[in-house]
Every structure is written in C-alpha cells, then in structure tokens.
Simulated assay, not measured.
Amino acid sequence: MPAKLVRDRIPERFPGGTYRKLDEAEYAAALLDKLTEEVEEYRADRTAEELADVLEVLHALAAFHGLMPGTLETLRAKKAAERGGFEERVWMEYNPDQTNAR
C-alpha cells in the first residue's frame, strides 16, 4: 500500500504500521492528494460514506487555511446567494467569445 494521509485514529486501529507527523508543506500537499483520492472513491461508489469522507477532507483543508467549517459555509452561502447553486442543473456550452464565466 502506498504512503498516504490517514485519519488521526488509524494508528490506534492498526498499530503495526509505520506513522509519522507531516510538516506543514507535506500536509498541504497530502491534503490535496487526499481530496483527489476521496473524490475518486466517491465517483466510483457514490455512497453517503464516501461523500462524508470528501467532506472530512474539505473540513481539514478549511482548518489548514484558518477557516472554521461555519466560516466556510458562510462563504459558500454568500456565493450561492450571488450566483446560485446547482439545483437547476444549468449546463453551459463552451463559447470562446464568452469570458469570465465561472
């Protein structure tokens, strides 16, 4: 099994492994890798448990950037109020003349 970021209590559950604490730069990179891993697992399984894993990584990323989950939610809600969410399933076709669309 390749080396990867694991949840804090994994060493308790699997004491035979080799573990170390990452420095800040390593942790930042590992969180991004973990986000990719968890999103790929959700895309494959599409279970609530896998979606919860994605959310856990998002909370860790928010904390890494000094944001509390509530602050992140406030930012999300503000953007949703300004631009909407994804409930209406709007699909935009690519138009090279159209710029600054996000």
Rank of each mutant, 00 (worst) to 15 (best):
A29I: 04
F14P: 00
R89M: 15
E41H: 01
R9P: 02
Y19E: 06
E38P: 02
L35K: 01
E88R: 15
R9F: 13
P11A: 07
A30Y: 10
H59E: 14
R43D: 12
P69V: 04
T71S: 08
E56N: 03
E40K: 14
P69W: 06
F86I: 10
H59M: 14
D33C: 14
A48H: 10
L61R: 01
N95F: 02
R46S: 01
L61D: 05
E49C: 05
R46E: 04
T36H: 14
M92K: 10
A62F: 09
E24Y: 00
A30E: 11
A48I: 14
R20G: 03
V54F: 01
A28C: 05
L75T: 04
E12M: 11
H59W: 15
R7Q: 12
E50G: 06
A62C: 05
G16Y: 04
Y42G: 05
E50K: 11
F64V: 05
T47Q: 01
V90Y: 07
A52G: 15
L72S: 00
K34V: 07
T71I: 11
R89E: 11
K34H: 04
E73C: 03
A80C: 13
K78A: 13
E26A: 11
A77K: 14
L58S: 04
E41K: 12
K79R: 12
E50N: 08
E12L: 14
R13K: 13
L31T: 07
Y19Q: 08
L22F: 10
G17Y: 04
